[in-house]
Amino acid sequence: MPPAQRTLSDNSLISAFSAIVRAASARTVAAYVPLPAEPGGAALVGALAAAVPRLLLPVLLPSRDLDWSVYDGTLAPGPLGLSEPTGPRLGVDAVRSIDLMLVPALAVALDGTRLGQGGGSYDRVLPRVTAPTITLLHPGELLASLPAEPHDQRVCGVVVGSTTGYETAHLHWTKGCAIPHYWHSIGLSANDGG
């Protein structure tokens, strides 16, 4: 994707997800620090920190599981080229009490199957999460289907970015998990053909 289109997509994703956070009155959101080519881009963490009172970011453990820390405005280099928060560690179970989770992905299928980077970190984390799990995607990364392994964990929804500046990014619910009824007023479901 050309840089100008990536910037448009990232900006539309940040705007759409920030609106979802506000519409859901989320008090605690768990997210991630995007790698350079991942949706959301460099501005994602700062925008989320402005939209939610408490933003948790992951810390990669040697086991490939994720610990969590409250984002305090600073990041430090972590393993595998990742950036990590510098605050006190809250433990792997910190995500049990969140209101919403933003999960990284390379692609997602309509049934919620998520293609990640291959380390399995989020397949370890997602069973602990009862809040809706949403992924940001660039256009072309929401697919009809993806191969899945028995250990793969599904996500509840995706926000697909816009690269034209004329349309807006919006939420598509997948068939990946049950969503409390009040969430259905935010975005479309996979059953709507979204």
Rank of each mutant, 00 (worst) to 15 (best):
G118H: 05
F17V: 02
V103E: 08
G112R: 07
P53I: 04
T174M: 09
A26Q: 01
G140N: 12
R22S: 13
S9G: 12
S162C: 14
D99P: 08
L142Y: 14
Y166Q: 15
L100T: 03
S162P: 14
P132T: 05
L102R: 04
L13A: 01
R6M: 09
V59I: 06
L143I: 04
P36Q: 00
W173H: 05
L171E: 06
V59W: 04
G112M: 05
P34N: 02
G41T: 07
P79L: 13
A24I: 11
F17D: 00
V70S: 11
S9M: 02
Q153R: 09
T86H: 11
S15C: 02
G119N: 03
Q153E: 09
E84M: 02
G91Y: 02
V70W: 01
D65M: 05
G73C: 10
G194K: 04
G78L: 12
S185F: 04
D65Y: 03
Y182C: 11
L136Q: 02
V70C: 08
R96P: 00
P79W: 10
P58Y: 04
D99F: 02
V158G: 08
L35K: 02
G81N: 11
A131P: 08
I179D: 07
A47V: 10
V95P: 13
T28M: 10
L48N: 02
G176I: 06
V159H: 02
A31D: 00
A4G: 04
G187C: 09
G187P: 11
G91T: 10
L61T: 05
L55V: 02
I179G: 07
L48A: 01
T168A: 15
L55T: 01
S9C: 14
L55R: 01
S18T: 05
V125E: 13
P58I: 00
R64D: 01
S185T: 12
T130C: 15
P36V: 01
L56F: 08
P127V: 09
A131G: 07
L143R: 11
R114N: 12
I20H: 12
H184C: 11
L57C: 03
A107D: 14
I14K: 04
S18R: 00
R6D: 14
G81Q: 07
D65L: 01
V129P: 12
A49G: 09
G81D: 01
V33C: 04
L106K: 15
H172A: 14
P62A: 01
L115H: 07
A131S: 09
T74K: 15
V155Y: 09
R114Q: 06
A47Y: 07
P58V: 00
P88R: 13
R27N: 14
P53D: 05
T174N: 08
L106R: 15
P88Q: 13
A76R: 14
N191S: 13
A4E: 08
V52S: 03
P79C: 10
G112P: 13
T28G: 05
P150V: 06
D152C: 03
T168D: 15
E149W: 13
I134K: 06
V52K: 03
A51I: 03
T7V: 09
T7E: 12
G165S: 06
K175P: 07
Y166P: 02
P150L: 03
V92Y: 02
T164M: 04
G140H: 07
G193I: 08
T113S: 13
L8Y: 08
G161C: 08
T174E: 05
P34D: 03
I98V: 15
R154N: 08
L115K: 10
N191D: 13
D99S: 10
G87I: 03
V108P: 12
P88K: 14
A50T: 07
